[in-house]
Structure formats: structure tokens, C-alpha cells
Computed example of a mutant assay.
Amino acid sequence: MAKLQTVQEFVTAYLKHVKAGMSPSTLKTYTKNLKPFLERFHNRCFSDLEPFEIEEYFDQVKLKQDGSEKAPDTIRLLMTAFENLQKWGIENKQLQERVAPRMKKPKGRRRERLPNERERELLLRAASPAFRLVYKALRQSGCRPNEMARAMIADLVTFDDSRMVVLSDHKTAKKTGEARRIPVGEKLGALIDASIGDRTEGPLFLSPRGSPWTAATLSKTFYRLRKRLNLADDLVLYLTRHEHATQVYSKTKDIHATARALGHSSIQTTQRYVKDNVEELTTNQDCVE
């Protein structure tokens, strides 16, 4: 590899590395999170950047246009993208040493509660028919929003009279080496069939305009609904996975089955998704003689 000099050259080479060894969704994430760094320093020599410049950059990039601070998860992603770019440069002998010391990343948000019945009813009543279908499907399946957005009619297959959505490109594909298999039960199947209608190709779910959903457009649609209804800011679309996990575990009492339902490779991850059921805890307490 020729010696890299400018930030532009570093970012281009690093994204080429990401593209070769990681999923398209990972490439998209790194491209997005390195974009502001590239725009700020593109023609600068990477090795000449000073720690105070990197600190000033993150002080600026962590803020929204209105001056408020971005979500901790967003800031973590921006920092992680820079850290991994710098680490890659050192490992490939393009940098002799770090240009900035390790940064303390903000802790990610912990999702401690689930939507209540009133909140779900308000969201479903205010949603467009297209979003209502995909929102229900997310709760029913436990899928990640980007999995449901990418799922195509061609991914819907039948095994022994049972339908299943099979995704080869998914978040844990590299770790598990296996496709993500999402069972399609009666309720999820009805939602998928209502969405597909007489279509024979394309995404399982389409936006109100007939275009494919993305994880970003799904989240933005949920955000607009939440704001319009004046619901709490801690309600996010990703809680559909937490709802699914909590209900599956509540019925099965099997953390391994719950992990398989979510496509997790570790039950430690799954345990963070399962929320306590207060009524169940009370019943268990009353069992003590």
C-alpha cells in the first residue's frame, strides 16, 4: 500500500477496507459517521493533526443545529468511527502513533421501559396504514428495523409448510456465520400478506409513497408520530424488539429461545432486552410461604 497522507486518502482507503470485509450496512454506517470528519479535515495531513483539533472537532460535531447535544449513542458512533480509522492507520503502518489520545465515550442509552397500552394505541391510531403494518410486524417478529426494511419478497421461503424470512446479510452474520432466520407465524404472516398483496417482487413492506423503507425512515416516521402525540422522548422504535423479547421470555421462561427469536449470539445481550413484569414479580413474591 502506498503511503497515505491526507485525511481524504485515509478515509477512502479505510472505507475500501470496510467494504471488503464487512456488511453493506456496516459500510454505510462508517461512511456516514466519517463524513463530518472528512469534510472538516479532508486535505490536511492526517499525521499532522493535533489533539486539540480533534477535541474541538468532537465538541462541535456532538451538537445539533439548534445547539442541543446529540444522543449519546450517536456521539459514540462518531467517536468509534474515528478511533477505528486511527487504529487501522497504525496497524497498517500508515501512522507511527496516535494523533489523539483515547477519548471517553458517553454511555449508551439504556432502554428501561416499554410502551404502555395507551401509548401503543395512540401510535397505531395516528400512523399511516403502511407504517401501522410494518410497526406491528416489528413487534410481532422482534426484528431489527433494518432487517425488516431490507427483507424482500424473495427472502420469504417455505420449509416443510412453514414460512420463514431468511436474511444472509444481517448484523451478526460475521460473528455467527449463519443466515438470520425469522419464523413467520400466523399473525406475522397476515401482516406480510396484507403488505405484499399481489406483488411478486420487491420489499416485504413499502412506505406510504410505495418506496422501500430504510431503518432511518422508519425511525424518523416513529419520531414524528411521537412528537405529534406529545409522547415521552424515551419511546423509540427499537423498543419493539424489547417488547418482543419480554413477551417471549414471559411465556417461555427460556432465555435461549428468546435469544434465538432476536437473532442474538449471546444470552448476555438478550438479558438486557427482557424487562421485568411487575405483576409477575408480585405473583412470584406471593408464592413465598
Score class of each variant (00 low, 15 high):
60 Q>N: 10
149 A>P: 02
152 M>H: 10
111 R>N: 14
100 A>M: 13
153 I>D: 00
6 T>V: 11
84 N>W: 00
152 M>W: 05
234 D>A: 11
256 H>G: 01
113 R>T: 09
58 F>Y: 04
102 R>P: 11
41 F>W: 06
99 V>L: 15
127 A>Y: 07
189 G>F: 08
6 T>R: 00
50 E>V: 12
132 R>W: 02
171 K>S: 01
129 P>R: 07
173 A>N: 02
156 L>F: 05
246 T>D: 05
25 S>C: 01
28 K>T: 01
202 G>R: 06
120 R>S: 10
279 E>S: 07
142 G>D: 15
242 H>F: 11
198 D>G: 13
2 A>C: 09
117 E>P: 01
248 V>Y: 06
157 V>F: 04
137 A>F: 12
144 R>V: 09
81 A>Y: 00
259 A>S: 02
197 G>Y: 01
251 K>T: 12
97 E>P: 04
97 E>N: 10
186 E>W: 09
6 T>G: 03
233 D>C: 04
115 P>F: 06
202 G>N: 06
63 L>I: 09
240 T>C: 15
51 P>K: 09
116 N>V: 01
248 V>D: 01
283 T>F: 12
238 Y>R: 12
114 L>T: 05
53 E>K: 08
196 I>R: 00
183 P>I: 13
194 A>F: 10
69 E>S: 04
12 T>G: 04
59 D>Q: 14
50 E>C: 08
20 A>H: 00
160 D>Q: 12
118 R>S: 11
239 L>Q: 05
121 E>G: 12
128 S>T: 09
160 D>F: 15
236 V>T: 07
14 Y>E: 10
117 E>H: 06
182 I>P: 05
247 Q>Y: 15
285 Q>N: 11
70 K>Y: 03
121 E>F: 04
21 G>I: 02
204 L>A: 06
33 N>S: 04
244 H>M: 14
85 L>V: 09
28 K>W: 05
107 K>P: 03
261 A>Y: 03
273 Y>V: 03
239 L>I: 14
146 N>H: 03
89 G>Y: 12
95 L>Q: 09
204 L>V: 07
153 I>T: 11
256 H>R: 13
10 F>W: 14
249 Y>H: 13
132 R>A: 09
199 R>C: 14
228 R>K: 06
107 K>Y: 00
87 K>H: 14
103 M>G: 02
253 K>L: 10
96 Q>H: 15
149 A>W: 00
99 V>N: 04
256 H>V: 15
74 T>I: 12
247 Q>L: 14
38 L>S: 08
165 V>A: 07
4 L>W: 10
131 F>I: 05
228 R>E: 14
157 V>N: 04
178 E>H: 01
26 T>W: 08
119 E>C: 04
210 G>V: 12
207 S>I: 10
275 K>M: 08
23 S>R: 02
266 S>N: 00
146 N>I: 08
113 R>E: 04
224 R>L: 11
54 I>Y: 09
99 V>Q: 12
202 G>C: 06
277 N>V: 04
123 L>C: 07
181 R>N: 14
84 N>K: 04
68 S>E: 00
288 V>I: 13
74 T>W: 03
33 N>A: 05
110 R>Y: 05
187 K>R: 14
194 A>K: 13
105 K>N: 08
237 L>R: 03
110 R>K: 07
177 G>L: 05
177 G>T: 00
140 Q>L: 15
275 K>F: 12
69 E>H: 08
197 G>A: 09
220 K>T: 13
243 E>W: 13
45 C>K: 14
230 N>G: 02
167 L>E: 01
